[in-house]
Amino acid sequence: MPDGDTPDGDEPRFDFTRDVSRRRLMRTGGGLAVFGIAAPAQGSFNAEDFDVARLQEMDEVEVEEQGLEYFTIRQARVVHDMTARIYPSDDNGPGAPEAGVVYFIDGQMNSAWGRGERWYMQGPFAGKDPTDPFEEDAEEPADIDESPRVPWAETNPSETQGWQYALTPNEAYDQGIHAVEEYVQAEYDADSFTGLEDEQQDEVIEALEEGEVETFEDSDIDPDGFFLLVRQNTLEGMFSDPMYGGNREMVGWRLKGFPGTPGALGSYREMIEEDEYVELEEGDYRKLADDVESLGIDGENDEPA
């Protein structure tokens, strides 16, 4: 029989909560509201310190060369305009141009993610002949062929098999942007996607979504695959923590009524049961940097293993 079926109420030998609270006391100088124990709602987060621009007064970001880590200025302008059509500024408030989504994506290009460092990128790739990675053992007799020969160049991946492009995300952007520009030059009287009217840009994005942009034939990614990537990154740039370069002044969260990290409201334990919908006020939004500052743990949180 497994033992341990009699929980005793004795003094715990390990106490994670106590550990957390001790650290909180040590490091926050009494800012208990961060985790909502002392003051559940609103807490000590001071709305007067909330120095963001009003939503309707936000300006489009300037796309400038010196702010870029990965894209060329021309690439950045194309991406900026694409994100502006995917999540536009309109009657419902600011969009990707104000949130600075282009800078988010540019930063991602130069990250481990953009370089595909945690993706499996070994060949062979379906649709491409491998450079014979499996014949390195030359001493093996030729007539022993344990593995079935796969005609890689003639193999099309099934749609259910996921990303099979021989490209990391930043390479996909390089090729995708190039193909979009070629398409625009062939189909429109324009030198660049950025020179098109809004409606024309929408046509191009629709064509990407539909997978009907012939200039992608020379690239390793499909137009619809490129569209999905840009769409996903646009939403990420709208709604991820501002530390990643998008969602400037928490504009995406304020549009949506999402408070950010729960620090702003402290614990939701008391509130979640209530029938009332909480209308967030400007001072309720909170980003990770606010948590880090109030916890005094700046720079301590390494990338988890």
């Binding site: 341990g4 715990p12 390990f14 957390v20 334990r269």
Partner: peptide
Amino acid sequence: QYTNPDGVQQGQCQYCGYCERFGCEWGA
């Protein structure tokens, strides 16, 4: 808050909405 039969105490959930794919800073 709960002390289990091994004497390990865990914290109380705050319904913060960050569970799946995340770790819990509360030990809850």
